[in-house]
């Protein structure tokens, strides 16, 4: 299962990216952060969001060949996005914390596996 750690990382990055993109939207910013989104701060969430999604794609490219990697990357967006969508109304703060915790956890897992 050598592809499990990079896959986990790709999924975590997709989740973090989508969360960041949702934080650039008024409704979800309120939900997660508990305060109003300043219009000039939108770009602090939107750009990192896209960057994280790009990183997720980059990780899938190390696992699969180009065509399949593109397909799987958009698929991972679905698998990461659906929990986010259903967490936001119920556990918005948790949704936000996961966006930080999951990529960190994924990188720790990968480095542990790589070193072992």
């Amino acid at each position: 299962m050598t592809m499990a750690p990079p896959l986990f990382l790709a999924l975590a990055l997709a989740y973090a990216g989508l969360t960041s993109l949702s934080l650039a939207m008024k409704r979800h910013h309120d939900q997660v952060m508990g305060r109003k989104l300043q219009p000039e701060r939108v770009r602090y969430y939107r750009w990192p969001g896209w960057l994280l999604l790009a990183l997720s794609l980059w990780v899938t490219l190390t696992v699969w060949p180009l065509g399949l990697a593109l397909f799987m990357a958009v698929g991972l967006v679905a698998i990461a996005g659906l929990p986010l969508v259903f967490l936001l109304p119920y556990r918005a703060r948790l949704a936000g914390r996961l966006a930080v915790a999951l990529p960190v956890l994924a990188m720790l897992t990968w480095s542990t596996v790589a070193l072992a």
């Binding site: 397909f71 698929g75 679905a78 659906l82 969508v85």
Partner: peptide, 13 residues
């Protein structure tokens, strides 16, 4: 909408 849009590339494929 969420299940349809998020997985749209898969549905189309």
């Amino acid at each position: 909408n969420a299940t349809a849009v998020l997985a749209l590339p898969y549905h189309f494929m």
